[in-house]
Amino acid sequence: MRTLFVTNDFPPRPGGIQTFLHGLAVRRPPGSVVVYAPSWKGAAGFDAEQPFPVVRHPGSLMLPEPGVLRRAEDVLRAEGCDSVVFGAAAPLGLLAPALRRRGAGRLVGITHGHEAGWASLPVARALLRRIGDGVDALTYLGEYTRSRMARALSPEAVARMAHLAPGVDEKVFHPGAGGDEIRARHGLTGRPVAVCVSRLVPRKGQDALIHAWPTVLRTVPGAALLLVGGGPYRADLRRLAVSRGVDGSVVFTGSVPWEELPAHYDAGDVFAMPCRTRRRGLDVEGLGIVYLEASATGLPVVAGDSGGAPDAVLDGETGMVVPGRSVARVAEALATLLADPDGARRMGERGRAWIEREWRWEIQAARLGSLLTS
């Protein structure tokens, strides 16, 4: 069996979905994967290092239109692929019936968070139903996204839904992954540190962390907030830190190389990303791979209650789930964990054990393998 991944989301473009799909692709049997994805800065160097062929679309976005279909058909035929994985079922899954006619015997559509939003909009809802009817299996991240999408799908498509979530490489993300060097780099040695690793956008809740920080400092003097990542919200967040009088204890790293991410998690004592749903449910957290990576690194997590984020936390065991719009609840959770290092460490240890038990990449890759052969 050889599988064609058709996806807009693939490295070197950064992001959680990209990491998810790459993690699945590299764990398929040797010689069994071909990827068709858009062009992106640095793609040539990245592609040369992959254990499978990557065919790049001329532009940076692929839509379900004739040019993309034609190229996908060409790759399917030239590479001898007999199955297709749509890296994000919406919208490229609309190509499924045509690719089936061209010889794809098995089609799987992977969903994330935005498909749950599609289920709420009349036109998008109808398209999602078409996608569900066109593939052999439609995956879901957790119960939240499953239930939202099921409302839009036909009964037959609902019966074919299957759980498939990102995995975590517990050998890469682990306690002692280099946090001391990151702390020294930013002048944080010896200080209690809450870390957030995420793109800087309103949904992720970094502003709630900054609003909460004066309260945290009253309980844990000397604590620091390490915000890892870039994004369009950065200037607003910097101004907010100044206006709240906490700019001296909030560190912005900007975007960091992927290979440094484990060390940045490891630089924290607590991980926090109080995400919240926006735009009447259209902008929602599908799962939150960052929570799982933080748990693998041995950190307790403070997660927002948006969408499927609670599926990535065992509330009260591996972390705390709080309303992302409640600054008071965010501050309480952070202060509680930072003020109790022993309790936070025990919670992080339980998180690490949970990752090893249920979230390793090998488990998720085996699930995809089953979907492709059922």
Rank of each mutant, 00 (worst) to 15 (best):
R2D: 01
T3D: 03
F10R: 00
R27M: 11
R28E: 14
G31L: 09
V33T: 15
W40F: 14
K41R: 14
G42R: 10
G42A: 05
A44N: 00
V54L: 13
V55I: 14
V55Q: 04
S60P: 06
G67L: 09
V75K: 01
A78P: 00
E79M: 00
C81W: 03
V84R: 08
A89V: 10
A90F: 15
L92F: 02
L92N: 06
L94G: 02
L99V: 07
G103L: 06
R106H: 08
G109S: 10
H112G: 01
A116D: 10
L121R: 15
L127Y: 14
L127H: 11
R129T: 06
L138G: 10
Y140C: 09
S154K: 07
P155N: 04
E156N: 00
A157V: 09
G167F: 05
H174W: 08
H174Y: 13
G179V: 13
I182K: 07
R185I: 10
V193G: 06
R199K: 07
P202M: 02
R203C: 01
A208H: 12
L209A: 05
P214E: 08
R218L: 11
G222I: 11
V228A: 05
R239L: 10
L240Q: 08
A241Y: 07
R244W: 00
G248S: 04
F252G: 12
T253I: 04
P262A: 07
P262Y: 03
H264W: 13
H264A: 11
Y265W: 10
D266I: 11
C275Y: 04
G281E: 03
I289V: 14
E293I: 02
V302M: 08
A312R: 06
L314V: 15
D315C: 05
E317S: 14
V327N: 06
A335H: 07
T336M: 12
T336W: 12
P341M: 13
G343S: 13
R346C: 04
R367E: 10
R367G: 04
L368V: 11
L368Y: 11
L372Q: 09
